[in-house]
Design a binder for these strands. Structure first.
Lengths: 129, 129, 129, 129
DNA sequence: GTGGTCTAGACCACT
DNA sequence: GTGGTCTAGACCACA
């Protein structure tokens, strides 16, 4: 299942859910148009308060990943959203820079780090549904 | 100076400080054995609550980046710390995976993402002091 | 047809219907005495839950826009309804005030906003059937 | 005071707060950089649950009207935010169109409606602090 | 049945 | 002291 939340993690539960859904969509586990479990359903399934689930869903809706239809439920967004790739590039670059900093302190040099990244990419591509 | 803290950012100020120092060390701006500014000094310099600086230093000490000698001050750690590279590998892989998820939602494919990473690495290497 | 309902919109579908009918009447597309499609008919035509259509018709009847004659169907109201213009004035003023607030946050000044309003009025008058 | 909320209104309390703050800012009652009352403070003052206030503040932050500084409080945004005036124009036009529809049903003709709008604008300008 | 709103009350991280 | 998160439990509007 794509929703494993660790209530003891320092990452807020609702964010774990948001990330989980984003990952599931990115991996193809959740496909466009697919119905999401209802707030209550998911809440009982993973024994999390419904309000917390709702908060996650609202955040996901703001990010354009899912959309809710009043009275009918919540669904993975159909149409590809418009993204600002320049913004994306800036954010990705920052994240990547952070990785290099972390890598340094774990005593990985640039070459090793690039190798590791390629390894992760290969694993990721195999995982795609 | 090597730290710019943005009080507007959603990242806690003390963490911005921690990251700033880690980056400065990684880039070679701060070198092993170098004296860090005192908490009080830094606090007035960047007009941040001293408690916040202290918390950042505490965290940096916990991570083994700096060390404090009572009465003498705080210094960038001399001896290379022992790190568990396996732990590091696990953490780096997770961060890299997250990048791939983010990249997907910004509509970057794997190839572009790898390219971007190599670009960032090259820029990083040039920046080294 | 004169109603386009967007199930994605945050405005409830039944209200979109109400507004659609009110607009059609105001524009002269629907004229006094004209027969409205039956709930059932409309429901299949625009694939909306009949209950939703019924709720919209109920609201329209409450507002005196349409009237139902049992066994004969639903019609756009014939006789001009009596309205409390003072109430109307109050409501319109409040709506207009809200527009000024929104305009401010979109960085339109009063003059521009009035100009825009006049533009909308001219467009509206041309649209009349 | 700029926070009068009617718990019996059909408009959600948190939205009434959002609109109230937007109005106060537009009128100049709240000025850039000014400190907002703390969530708890406002909650006790207007006897509304703190969570509800927090929700309103979060929405206002998303809209760029206010900004929060961790541990210090919430403030009216300093720098003018970048807005998409084209989007604004579209939204304002739609709101204005709705006014014309409402006006029709209250039996105001275009001329009267424009007159009323100008009246509201004049009153608005006088109200500015 | 679906999500949205609200309350009461608790705990925590940050400054 | 500040906002952020979470729970439990309730009520309501919408389809």
């Amino acid at each position: 299942m794509w929703f494993i939340v660790d209530p003891r993690s320092s990452i807020p539960i609702y964010l774990q859910l948001v990330n989980g859904v984003k990952e599931a969509v990115a991996r193809g586990v959740l496909v466009a148009g697919e119905k999401m479990p209802s707030v209550r359903e998911l809440a009982t399934q993973i024994t999390i308060n419904p309000n917390t689930i709702a908060k996650a869903y609202q955040e996901l809706e703001r990010e354009g990943i899912i959309e809710t239809f009043r009275g009918r439920g919540t669904f993975v967004t159909q149409k590809k959203k418009e993204v600002n790739r320049e913004d994306g590039k800036r954010i990705l670059k920052m994240l990547m820079r952070n990785i290099l900093i972390e890598a340094y302190h774990f005593q990985f040099d640039s070459e090793e780090t690039v190798g590791l990244f390629q390894e992760v990419v290969r694993a990721w591509e195999k995982e795609q549904v």
